[in-house]
Design a protein around this nucleic acid. Sequence first.
DNA 1: GCAAATTTGTTCGTATGTATT
DNA 2: CAATACATACGAACAAATTTG
Lengths: 276, 276
Amino acid sequence: MFGPLYRQIADDLQRQIEEGILAPGQRLPTEPELRAHYGASRNTVRDAVRWLTTRGLVRTKPGQGTFVVERAEPFITTLSSHPETGLGGGEGQAFQAEVVAQGRSPRASQPRVSVLQAAGVVADELRVAAGSSVVSRHQERFIDGSPFSLQTSYYPMGLVQAGAVRLLEASSIHPGTGAYLGEILGLRQARYSDLITVRTPTVSETTFFELPDSGRVSVFETFRTAFDAEDRPFRLTVSVFAADRNEFAVFSGVVPTEARTVRSPRSAEAGTGRDA
Amino acid sequence: MFGPLYRQIADDLQRQIEEGILAPGQRLPTEPELRAHYGASRNTVRDAVRWLTTRGLVRTKPGQGTFVVERAEPFITTLSSHPETGLGGGEGQAFQAEVVAQGRSPRASQPRVSVLQAAGVVADELRVAAGSSVVSRHQERFIDGSPFSLQTSYYPMGLVQAGAVRLLEASSIHPGTGAYLGEILGLRQARYSDLITVRTPTVSETTFFELPDSGRVSVFETFRTAFDAEDRPFRLTVSVFAADRNEFAVFSGVVPTEARTVRSPRSAEAGTGRDA
DNA sequence: GCAAATTTGTTCGTATGTATT
DNA sequence: CAATACATACGAACAAATTTG
């Protein structure tokens, strides 16, 4: 046996978790029990448990115990546009449809609408002057009751002045904001570009997604800029997803409709030539 | 003042880092110095430093000290296909071109070629029987000398039997494997699908990417399945990237060539309505 | 509703080991 | 080899959260 004692204990517990001896959701032995079992001090067994916590294998709850984490079945969002609707994953109607298609149940909060001054990415992507007004529409989204995404769309105030006054309504626009803009202004989403990043969550995101306080789970942040037929940007949508329960699919080229299904590769990890 | 003492110390150090009082690369005060400064025990200042370590703000080096981490400029990989070449980011020639276009310097190791039995995702995606032979071509990629990605492509052995014997060569295939398959077998990549996931790194990935041992930085894993004109899969490419220095872009719809540039939104984060 | 028991969280102290300069 | 700096390990006490009686 080699390495520090706390690592040996952590490795042994990790092995038990991976072999299913300690099943997901199950409580680990308490600190005094581990202490007796491994003949180590309390601080050392706590170091071992912390090692597992940092790697997301277990979660400690004060007053209750330490539990093996249960991994949620990842939800797959399609980022490329659907051939017919031109809509990509996560957007209004596409979100609802995609969730239902995966046999799960979507819910979205009423939008929180505000008018603010464009700055940073918002001004850059919408190509408006910094300080000019933009409409922000923010929604919280849930799947099967669990927090799924935080989404904020920004529209230049010019769209409202041109007649799209419902952008300021603090309620969902049926059948969809895109359709509404097409109807009122003849605006058509000709293309869009997505940028996907991963970063550490903010405090409010940690709260919303119920992430562990360790900073271990990061969030996906996608920036989607939509362009009209004249290639002018008219919307920026910033979405945030928890990285531990979301995956993204992208299709390129002509895709037969029946082929547009994906499943997570996680359930069948063997055979990729990875090490253990 | 509220919260545990170690958090107060950690928050104060974090503030100093964010305000630039402690610049990237700079050494933090030593444990005895922090101990004197904050009037806390050594274990407590160590808890504070660990808090920062877990969140990736600092890095401890035995015998040297604790240092503020320097964040590498993120590299952006385009996942959607290029209108002309049909190639997506990360693939052979596209990788070289994209890196150079961002003003950086690419390098790839010679491929490690092996023949193995298909299993799991590989068998599923290539639609071959589990246990049948597949060719695996593995490469390590570097940008500006830093480890960038681990990439493994899997081809059904049937392609070799049909005449594409160079797939077994343990050297790069010029001008590209895709072009070679087109030349020899008339195989054309009509479409592909990508799946993007984030997971914790394996041990060998931690070594290759020189990731902190804290398990904090996760890796992107992309699964790209390429299909021919008859919509049969002929290649699966699994790529792994460090999540702390990579981003992905996706373009949909008709995209003017001059619009196909992206920059990271990280440098201009203000104005997205996020909290601090 | 309250009190006791259980379980993890925080903080101190001390000693020794390992890596680097 | 010596000095410096972080890593590991032990012990002890009290606090906070939760469940149970």
